[in-house]
Design a protein around this nucleic acid. Structure first.
Lengths: 351, 351
DNA sequence: GTGAAAGCGCTAACAA
DNA sequence: TTGTTAGCGCTTTCAC
């Protein structure tokens, strides 16, 4: 309640005047450089008191302009409302904050033009570093950052030939394991509903799926490979399509939580019970997975770690400088969590 | 790929030099004021060309410092990983972006000190306006914004005596309706698991619950009123407690999606089937609600609207200036979505 | 121990 | 139609 309706924009000048000192001294005191400049306690205490009284709030723009450091990180994410990304955003926000950084969050809607625009915006705003979950394969704008020594780390999705720090998940393995699990349970007609093609995650998930089929001598049926973005509607439409095929699959692998929601909707509409009528496996765990009518078997990604490591890497690069030769590429392992959405068909094999 | 490793920090001066014009002319051209200043097409085209060649990126810090406008909004949210807030954040981000604003997202973890700190941070960063979902009842820091003519809108949660724009949901009604629904189904032993006390949402939800009981002549049992924050653990612990009471409730009202997750976990552990053994109603809809083992009856909030209106109000205030007398207070209606998590006990009454 | 002043990159008032 | 310059609020070099 103090300073209820005080003049806004109290500056160092105001404090300096009131304290009868110069701006430089005030600046030094307020930046904790009292010892360094051997400033008297008297001056220091006075300045703190006056700053308090005047309810001084430093102007981060001026500071940033001068220092070329904003203590702000930029996060570029495809869709924050997707629970997977929302959770990671939270973790990133948390660790950024714990390290004294704030976070500007940008959404790209999986649109490369939007992504380029957002990156430029963040450059303009002078962020100290970027965490990017890129769409697709275009990487000029990312190369630009690297060439200009702006710290970047790529998260969740990778880009070929980009020399940036990366935090990834072994999507191939996650997908392979999920598919193998279905095969072990006797399934051979296994469909996969993919997210956005041409992202590294989707590519790897597709490859893992295919490889598991191949390794088990199961023929790949192109009709069973559907989907091309991370949306509820995709899960819904593609599942509808799949179950209405002449020879529908006995199992569906939904490659994201959001696709899973759509798949659940379609299966409910079609009156297909999981797992009795059809089996379902999903990428991404959700809090609700265990309590679904069929507790969902999922590939769980280490989301906390992903976010935390990304921030750690980025801040390290910001603080220790850009090291040409050491661009860490961290690959985390996903984990198959077996619940109850897969039924055994014919001769099951023990996993 | 152009300008691969060009000098960073191209400024107006660089463009001016290369184009043989003054900075002011360049600035005017790049800000679309060609007409206003009757600048020749020749100069304008030249400047655009040079800017492009040099890959000029405006420095938003300098601009912000000069203009005292950053085209950035600050969002203060209790917990972005909570799906309810995550979704709203997404909507706010979307509409902010559509209006040319970027968004700094701050998390308070329901901690008032953290909230004050975040608000100060946002002031420092020079955001043009604030969307805040406040914790608790302390409001000095918000008053400060208002007194200094910094546009604010309060979202989801209100504060007494604060003259800010607000976008709220009628939590009393949502809660009343949910409770009445349970009563109509014959329940009288109804427990409520609350989120953080002393927030307006929780207070109203509690009042709505109580009023419904009172209006139906049902005695309020304090043992049935539990919980004090928005965490999974709270839902879990309190539900455990409730079902182990000497006279356990026949229905539980979980007042947030995240509390619901905990409640589901506890009920599963206790081997209590919904709705046969116990009924459950929740505040907040989630995508998975229809596909739970008992499709969940919920109070659904108009999240899209909440976010969109908040942004609209804020930007209006930013652009049209602070109007002392008109602080809109928008109250949206929640909606009871009846699914299948409530069973009729004894003589059911038609709703 | 402290101060003066330059300068970060930009806009706009004033001048021409 | 264009240029000169002050100044936004801050940090820091150089000076005393």
């Amino acid at each position: 309640m103090l300073q209820v309706s005080g003049k806004m924009n109290i500056t160092l000048v105001d404090i300096a005047k009131k304290a009868g000192l110069s701006v430089s001294t005030v600046s030094r005191i307020l930046n904790g450089q009292q010892r360094k400049y051997r400033i008297s306690d008297k001056s220091a205490n006075l300045v703190f008191k006056v700053a308090e009284e005047l309810n001084y709030k430093p102007n981060a723009l001026a500071r940033g302009l001068r220092l070329k450091k904003t203590h702000t990180l930029g996060l570029v994410v495809p869709d924050i409302s997707n629970p997977f990304f929302a959770f990671i955003t939270r973790i990133i926000q948390l660790h950024a904050h714990n390290n004294g950084y704030s976070l500007i969050v940008c959404n790209t809607d999986e649109n490369i033009e939007s992504e380029v625009e957002q990156v430029n915006l963040l450059i303009s705003k002078g962020v100290d570093g970027f965490i990017i979950m890129p769409v697709g394969t275009q990487s000029d704008h990312i190369e630009y950052l690297i060439n200009n020594e702006l710290p970047v780390v790529l998260l969740d999705r990778t880009l070929a030939n980009v020399k940036a720090g990366m935090v990834l998940v072994d999507n191939f393995k996650g997908s392979y394991d999920a598919t193998q699990h279905l095969i072990n349970k006797g399934h051979t007609a296994i469909a996969i509903v993919l997210g956005l093609r041409n992202t590294s995650t989707t590519n790897e998930r597709l490859e893992g799926y295919k490889q598991a089929l191949i390794d088990n001598g199961i023929e790949i049926n192109e009709k069973y490979i559907v989907g091309n973005d991370f949306r509820i509607e995709t899960g819904y439409i593609e599942t509808k399509f799949l179950v209405n095929l002449e020879k529908p699959p006995t199992a569906i692998f939904a490659t994201s939580d959001i696709i899973t929601v759509g798949a659940l909707k379609a299966l409910a509409e079609e009156n297909l019970k999981i797992p009795d009528d059809i089996s379902l496996v999903a990428f991404d765990d959700t809090d609700f997975a265990p309590y679904l009518s069929a507790p969902l078997t999922v590939v769980k990604q280490p989301k906390e770690l992903m976010g935390e490591i990304a921030v750690k890497l980025l801040i390290e690069e910001i603080q220790n400088g850009h090291d040409e030769f050491e661009k860490p590429k961290i690959i985390l392992k996903p984990k198959l969590v077996i619940r109850n959405s897969v039924v055994s068909v014919s001769k099951p094999v023990s996993i």
